[in-house]
Each structure stands twice: as structure tokens, then as C-alpha cells.
């Protein structure tokens, strides 16, 4: 025969910092956690448990059989410049011999700020784990991630955690607004158009790399007229200016290129752009190569751009 253990708990996460040491710069502003579990443990197993509770608990866990439900609702907070709002994850699963397995579920988040705004994020999730497995107690399989960002959509087909060696995944960019994207780096450059792309990712513990990414935009404008640094350069480099001035206002009908990024975030984009300075009906072929560190850009945005973010969202109200 067996002893039945029934557990039920509801936690308000806003006060979690009072009894659980949160990592520095991490703040939970809200959310609920509902836990329920029904477990059996055989009396024989109970009898063999060692006296010392520290030794006993893993044995106890290993001996439990049963099912659990963990519902995370409206989790919100900040961590090191990142922000997350209305995160929701319902989990149902079974536990046998220390191994647990949760049914396919969906993780949702209304907003994630990482220097770039991601909204309406949703990803399907298969979670399982081993209570006694010290190295990686949790295995996760993400499929069909989608989120709105920069006026368009980003989609990730699948990702496993922990990362096996050659874990590959594909990130799809769907109609991202180039003007919003460029404004992240420099507000005085105006580039319009909708960017599509497929970026093969290689995921590992050292980071995320992009190998042979392809991006393209079918139509738009490049306007450097208001860029003071650019205008200053045109004045200083008279020889180059005769050609470069066409970029003051260039209409393009094709932009395509290759993207490479290595694990530390260093990204190189090699773009070919076919366009025309309409004012002078002068056709232009622009070969544009740019190199920057995306992780550093996102960090800079998380550090200093935050004021614009809250300004645009709720105007002055937030500061009353």
C-alpha cells in the first residue's frame, strides 16, 4: 500500500524577493504561481529513508509517483535592463521515479524588452527533467516561436535546450520595418522598406551564430540628407562627394545580401542595392558592407534608450 501526498499552493510572486534571494538587478513586479500535486509513495520506500533529512529528500523525490500542475500567470519584472510583462506558462505533467514529463504547452509573453521591443511572443514547449540529474535537471524543446517586433514578425522554427553540439535552427524575418530597425543604431539615417530574411542559427553554450543568412527588401528609400556626419564628410571629400551625394536621397528597387554573425555578436552584412537618384534620374548600384556588434548595440539600447521607451509608451503619464 502507499501513502498519498496532496500538495496545493498559490504564491504571489511580487513578494518573492522577500524570501528568495533574487540575482542582483532582478526585480519581480507581479505574477502568480499556482501549484497542485498528488503523489503516492510506497510505505516500504518510506521505511528505508535515511534519518538525515538532507539525504532523505532526494530519495523521497525519487520514490514519488503522481501528477502535478504548475500554472505561472501574469509574471512581470526586470532583470539587468531586460523587461518582461504578462508572462504565462501552464504546465501539466507526471512524475515517476524522479523523472518528470510535462505535456506539450505554450509559453506566452505580452512584452519582452531586450533593447528591442518584442510583443505577443508565443512558443510551444515540451519540458521534461530528472530531479536527481545534477548536470541538466531540465530538458526543453521549443517549437514554432513567433513574436512581433520592429513592425513585423520574427519566427524561430525550433530550439532544444541544453544545446547539443551542432544545434541548428532557422530564424525568419517577416516584413520588418527597416526605418525602425535602422533608427535603433542611428536616428539620423533614414532607410525605408520591409525586410524579409532567413537566418540559419547555430546555437551553443558560447552563443548564437548566423551562418549564410539571407535578407532582402523589394523597395524603399535611403535618405542621408539629414545626417550631419554624412554631410560633413561630403564637404571634406569633394572627390567622393560627386558619387556619394546620390545617397542623400536614393530610391531602391532591390536590396539583397548576406548576413554572418559569430557567437560574440559581431555581425557583418554585405548588401547589394540597385537604385536610382530620381531627382537626377541617375541609376546607382550600391555595394554596402556594414560591421557592428549586435550584442553591444542591444546592451547600449538597454542602458540608455530606456527613457525613450517609457516615453513613447505612456507619454508623460508614467512620470506624474
Amino acid at each position: 500500500d502507499a501513502l498519498q501526498l496532496h500538495a496545493e499552493a498559490q504564491l504571489e510572486l511580487a513578494h518573492i524577493g522577500e524570501w528568495l534571494k533574487l540575482p542582483s538587478q532582478t526585480q519581480i513586479t507581479g505574477g502568480q504561481l499556482d501549484l497542485t500535486g498528488r503523489f503516492d509513495i510506497s510505505r516500504a520506500r518510506l521505511a528505508k529513508l535515511p534519518e538525515d533529512p538532507v539525504l532523505a529528500s532526494p530519495n523521497l523525490m525519487a520514490g514519488l509517483e503522481g501528477d502535478f500542475s504548475i500554472r505561472l500567470n501574469r509574471l512581470g519584472g526586470k532583470a539587468d535592463g531586460y523587461e518582461f510583462n504578462q508572462v504565462q506558462l501552464p504546465l501539466q505533467g507526471v512524475l515517476t521515479d524522479g523523472q518528470w514529463h510535462a505535456e506539450l504547452t505554450t509559453l506566452k509573453a505580452e512584452r519582452i524588452y531586450a533593447g528591442v521591443e518584442l510583443t505577443d511572443l508565443a512558443v510551444d514547449l515540451n519540458l521534461s527533467g530528472d530531479l536527481n540529474h545534477k548536470v541538466s535537471p531540465v530538458n526543453a524543446r521549443f517549437t514554432g516561436l513567433s513574436a512581433e517586433t520592429l513592425g513585423g514578425l520574427v519566427l524561430l522554427d525550433r530550439m532544444n535546450y541544453p544545446f547539443s553540439g551542432g544545434e541548428t535552427s532557422e530564424l525568419t524575418l517577416d516584413k520588418l520595418d527597416l526605418s525602425e530597425m535602422i533608427a535603433l543604431g542611428d536616428r539620423q539615417i533614414k532607410v525605408t522598406g520591409l525586410l524579409n530574411g532567413t537566418l540559419p542559427l547555430r546555437l551553443s553554450d558560447t552563443g548564437i551564430a548566423i551562418r549564410q543568412g539571407r535578407v532582402y527588401s523589394s523597395e524603399g528609400e535611403i535618405v542621408l540628407r539629414e545626417n550631419s556626419a554624412w554631410q560633413a564628410m561630403l564637404q571634406q571629400q569633394a572627390a567622393l562627394a560627386s558619387q556619394l551625394r546620390h545617397l542623400n536621397n536614393l530610391h531602391y528597387d532591390l536590396m539583397q545580401g548576406d548576413i554572418e554573425m559569430n557567437e560574440d555578436g559581431q555581425l557583418t552584412a554585405v548588401l547589394t542595392i540597385r537604385g536610382e537618384n530620381k531627382a537626377e534620374s541617375q541609376p546607382v548600384n550600391l555595394n554596402f558592407t556594414s560591421e557592428q556588434n549586435i550584442l553591444t548595440l542591444l546592451k547600449a539600447l538597454r542602458l540608455s534608450d530606456h527613457i525613450d521607451k517609457s516615453l513613447s509608451e505612456s507619454a508623460q503619464g508614467m512620470y506624474q
Binding site: S304, D305, H306, I307, D308, L311, Q316, Y319, Q320
Partner: peptide, 23 residues
């Protein structure tokens, strides 16, 4: 500008471009 506004203590005044506001 962003830094000084961020570090302003609640209740003190800030100007975000259109007039004084209490943070």
C-alpha cells in the same frame, strides 16, 4: 540627459521637452 532624468529622485522635477513634471 537620459542619465540625469533616470537618476532624478521621485518627487523632484524633470523636463522631458514639454514642461516641468514631477517624477
Amino acid at each position: 540627459g537620459k542619465k540625469v532624468i533616470e537618476k532624478t529622485r521621485p518627487g523632484n522635477l524633470i523636463d522631458l521637452g514639454n514642461g516641468w513634471l514631477k517624477k
